[in-house]
Design a protein around this nucleic acid. Structure first.
Lengths: 254, 254
DNA sequence: GCGAGTTTATGACGGGGGTCATAGTTTAGG
DNA sequence: CCTAAACTATGACCCCCGTCATAAACTCGC
């Protein structure tokens, strides 16, 4: 089964013979915000308990119910974090892009992972040993504060998500997501230029689960936004934002 | 206006002449899990920038959009954390009981508070100076780790909330909430005895906002749970749990 | 204990959106 | 290419639940 692929955690072949511009072991989390302030020595220490793994699209990165004792840091690619309810329905609670991580709860508390991670694109993931990260957080107050910032930010995002799910109709959430994707494209806090083309990184099915809706509804809403002249669908998975202001109106928050 | 009441933060009268078993200043956050591991000296330091405030029912504890530079730690009572959308609708994103806190984002990032806090019961709240808390997290790795644990836990809870809002119908969420309240009553991880009586700490209106629904629907769902024999409503705001197992079935998670 | 205000209960109604079914479209593999 | 599989689009149906309206029950302050 796929899920024991990271149970036997011997240094994988992934770290040898990389063609990339990223060192197989130590290099990846260097890019990650939380660890960017570490000293060379600390980096080195972290690298000791780290490995880099490649996951191809569709592959399971981590599995709910397990406790692998690792922090998963996405270095490249995209990983969806989903919860599957007893009734079999799936809800994406989070998307991990480069720099994002998962597994913080089981870092600090003796808990199994509550969600499953699946690569949506080919991804490179740093697996950091829990014990090393803990040790590092002990040593480096800066790292702790960075980590705390990251978690606090996620709390706010999740509160926003909860608010949106409870209060706003699907169409607004679609608008909000498009703006968010556009904002992620342009640089931080840029005003989101009119006519930006956003590339949807996922299938409608996946996006729907992220927004807490169904593929059919998402398709309809995208088209109704197009009919309203706010966006223009071009090709399979590209959207041009025609009227950013009115989009923002619908989104109202997030 | 109420919201400047913590703008002028001179030591309030609340801290003099307390009758309680909690010292006016330093005593309160001693009970709080995040700070329980601090040394006497560190406690003392924290107390320097701290004050204790009493809030009576309905009073605003903190206000969205402000940045008071404080961490709010609830020592006693209950505070609801709500977001009010542009359309005027309100969503409770969190309940703060004793030991819970709010304001962590503005602790780490230069952000105003995203939500408003209102006391649902008379409450005692410790106001800790942001700078002192930061300093403390620098000094004490243990405190940092505790804080990280607390935030990580909240992330999981919020992910669960989001999942519930997106996937589960109201009746299930009601069931989940009742079980959660019952679990909070009995001691940690106790099996929740059959026939437990849960006291609802809020009006249906407030609970509804917490569950992302309306008062009317909540009322109906409570009664349908009663008809199904899972609970028994007794009096205005007490519920007896008759069939914990079937309740848990509906809750399925959280 | 009596009216005013709050909280809860209940019916009627309608819309948003989930599900099912199905058809059209891309993509990918042989 | 050409078929199979995956993805997207669209219609039909219907149910959950939000809203409005209103009544009942409870709570308080005089």
């Amino acid at each position: 089964m796929q899920q024991d692929r990271h149970a036997d955690n011997q240094p994988t072949h992934a770290e040898s013979g990389k063609k990339g511009h990223c060192h197989p072991e130590a290099g990846c989390f260097r890019l990650v915000p939380i660890f960017s302030s570490l000293s060379e020595e600390e980096m080195q220490f972290l690298a000791t308990g780290a490995q880099t793994r490649q996951f191809s699209k569709g592959e399971v990165v981590f599995q709910a119910g397990q406790d692998p004792g690792l922090l998963f840091v996405v270095a490249r690619g995209l990983v969806k974090v989903t919860r599957i309810s007893a009734s079999g329905r799936e809800q994406v609670v989070r998307l991990l892009g480069p720099g994002d991580f998962y597994g913080e709860l089981s870092l600090f508390l003796p808990q199994a992972l509550a969600a499953t991670g699946v690569a949506l694109q080919d991804a490179r993931v740093c697996l950091l040993a829990r014990s090393h990260v803990r040790e590092l957080l002990h040593r480096s107050p800066e790292a702790s504060l960075k980590m705390l910032s990251a978690l606090a930010l996620r709390i706010m995002e999740l509160e926003t998500l909860a608010e949106q799910l409870a209060v706003h109709p699907v169409e607004n959430r679609v608008a909000a997501l498009l703006l968010k994707l556009a904002a992620a494209r342009g640089d931080v806090a840029a005003p989101v230029p009119q006519g930006t083309v956003v590339e949807l990184p996922l299938t409608q099915e996946e996006i729907a689960k992220l927004l807490g809706t169904s593929q059919e509804t998402l398709s309809r809403k995208l088209h109704s936004l197009e009919d309203a002249g706010l966006i223009r669908l071009q090709g399979r998975r590209c959207v041009r934002l025609l009227d950013v202001n009115r989009l923002a109106d619908r989104a109202e928050g997030l």
